[in-house]
Nucleic acid binder design. Sequence first.
DNA 1: ATATAAAACTTTAAGCTTGAAATATCTTGT
DNA 2: ACAAGATATTTCAAGCTTAAAGTTTTATAT
Lengths: 156, 156
Amino acid sequence: MVAGPLPAPSGPGKDRLRLWIRLLRASRTIEAELRERLKKDFNTTLPRFDVMAALYRAPEGMLMSDLSRFLLVSNGNVTGIVDRLVSEGLVARARRNGDRRTSMVRLTEEGTQAFAAIAAAHEGWIGELLGKVSEDDARRLTGMLTSFRSNWEGRE
Amino acid sequence: MVAGPLPAPSGPGKDRLRLWIRLLRASRTIEAELRERLKKDFNTTLPRFDVMAALYRAPEGMLMSDLSRFLLVSNGNVTGIVDRLVSEGLVARARRNGDRRTSMVRLTEEGTQAFAAIAAAHEGWIGELLGKVSEDDARRLTGMLTSFRSNWEGRE
DNA sequence: ATATAAAACTTTAAGCTTGAAATATCTTGT
DNA sequence: ACAAGATATTTCAAGCTTAAAGTTTTATAT
């Protein structure tokens, strides 16, 4: 998936293949750097950060299924990550609905404060790591990726 | 990491944060689709495909350390994936160098044929999944991502 | 020569990830 | 009311992933 074009691909459609390879390498490179910094500076992980970021946006809480849909990961996956966050006191489950199948998951006070600190650092890192991309290019790129994505939303 | 801008981020540097989020969501969406198709149509996985793609480009073989560097994953990780590929007869290790620490890893004949079939399908999928991106935009985007990446190459 | 360091790789423990199967709960049609 | 189906979540097995520690081999400096 990260194969580079040593024998540079050419022909119809090769530009898209090349784009995909670059896209993947870029995101993996950044992801690796973020993972390392999250570990070193905050002793946490990217999946934990993802979950906390989603919950931070939803103070009233989220269902497990909402979380997994939003984060684009499987539901079984979210269970494990939330389990660990709960055991660390950063997240709480509240099974107090009318519907007893669901559990409302939200950040604890401790989790909220912890996340705020991490998020501030995170935003700085992104600014640094993408520093060479002009704000103008950033907006242009974002637009392209958005239009690409809308093509994809709501498939399957 | 995939947090979307519900309370749309604004302020200095927010364009880069938004770009990163879009980048990540795009690559995860495509990756998920590829993973599913690789499983369904070829009963294989993305990591296996990555390793085989790297080896396909290097008929003479690659060292384990070259593989892990190229694929941007840890060395211990590659060991496991190659182990499984070897046990399936798709890849072979040859520890026959002057340097007896290294092992030259390469595709077997069976592995080469298997990969060729998968790669053909894969290229078609990418063309389909990125179909809405014009060849022109694809080239432009690739250029931006490349220049971004060169900013990153050879850090740490 | 021989200790010391460096390099290539593997092993290990912990955590992440998926897809499928299992549980529990709710909803619907009769 | 009750069976049948749909939903929400967890559990499970297998595989992926990393960082750190361990092994074997090679290179280097006395």
